[in-house]
């Protein structure tokens, strides 16, 4: 068993020189070496600072309705102009960003929770549980997503759901409809992990199933979960904005990037006042490009097998 001894001696020699890298450190180093990913990260940090801290420094107020200042083009006082109620577009855009980012992240969080749990259960127990869960996943995968979301959005409007609590429903709906991809990936991983030796060890230790799944199996799938989750945040933000644009997502008075763009439905605003709808659109574009760049960087960093 010389192969077992070798790394230990080697370790002793190198230990003085530098500490052994943990997988996370290696991943971090790989991530920072990827220029596009770092640019994406900077972009998303910028968006967060803009949306969450920006409004604090704004001299304007969302309730500053003034007909005198309505529909102003961008100027030194209103950097991005004003809307038909005389409200500052920049401030609205930053507040809308809070909502859009929040919906994107929370919806993904919900999807990850459901997907990871169901995927792990299916992979761990196999047999009938696996069949049932994966059959349900098949059904969800074949559901046409956008139409269903639009119909559900219409249902929310018809049930007269309060506009301020509407975003919570939206998060849940988008989350619940997006769990399948992750469930499949996690299940696949668990299927192979289940057969490895450390699982025999947990068996020998007499651990309960819950502990085996959540303490020993799922932590090993975290790289996959992180990458999929990151990429699906972008998807969730795009979905939310499309729904809000169509008037069935986040509805006014709550601002969101999507419903700000629906100002473009008015032909005059669309033609003559591009400052009403172009800035929020650019925000969506920048955010989703940034998230996709980060997601790709994370994939390269965390999953060396797929490295080109």
């Amino acid at each position: 068993m010389s192969a077992d001894v070798m790394p230990i001696t080697e370790n002793k020699n190198t230990k003085k020189a530098k500490a052994v890298d943990t997988p996370w450190k290696t991943a971090f180093r790989r991530f920072t070496r990827n220029k596009l990913a770092v640019i994406g990260f900077i972009m998303i940090v910028f968006m967060f600072i803009l949306c969450f801290l920006g409004p604090v420094f704004s001299p304007h107020n969302l309730f500053d309705y003034s007909l005198k200042n309505k529909n102003l083009a961008p100027n030194s006082m209103y950097w991005l102009g004003t809307d038909k109620l005389g409200r500052d577009i920049l401030l609205r855009m930053m507040l809308a960003g809070r909502i859009s980012l929040l919906v994107g992240f929370v919806a993904t969080f919900i999807a990850v929770m459901i997907g990871a749990t169901l995927g792990a259960l299916a992979g761990f127990y196999g047999k009938i549980i696996d069949t049932i869960i994966m059959r349900v996943a098949d059904i969800f995968m074949a559901l046409p997503l956008l139409p269903i979301l639009i119909i559900l959005g219409a249902v929310l409007s018809d049930l007269k759901v309060d506009p301020s609590s509407r975003i919570y429903y939206l998060m849940v709906i988008i989350g619940v409809l997006n769990w399948t991809t992750l469930a499949r990936l996690v299940r696949g991983q668990i299927l192979t992990l289940r057969e490895q030796e450390f699982m025999q060890a947990t068996e020998a230790l007499g651990l309960k199933d819950g502990r085996k799944i959540f303490k020993h199996l799922l932590p090993n799938t975290i790289p996959v979960i992180i990458v999929t989750a990151t990429l699906s945040v972008a998807g969730a933000i795009l979905t939310e904005s499309a729904l809000s644009f169509l008037g069935v997502g986040v509805v006014p008075p709550t601002p969101s990037w999507g419903n700000m763009i629906s100002a473009a439905n008015n032909l005059i605003d669309f033609r003559k006042r591009p400052w009403l709808w172009i800035p929020p659109g650019m925000c969506i574009l920048i955010t989703s490009v940034a998230i996709n760049l980060i997601g790709d960087g994370l994939r390269d960093a965390l999953d060396p097998k797929t490295k080109k």
Partner: peptide, 15 residues
Amino acid sequence: VFICMSLPSFFIGLL
């Protein structure tokens, strides 16, 4: 490629 993958279709259409 990344930009194409992240395009909000309605916004690009409008632009």
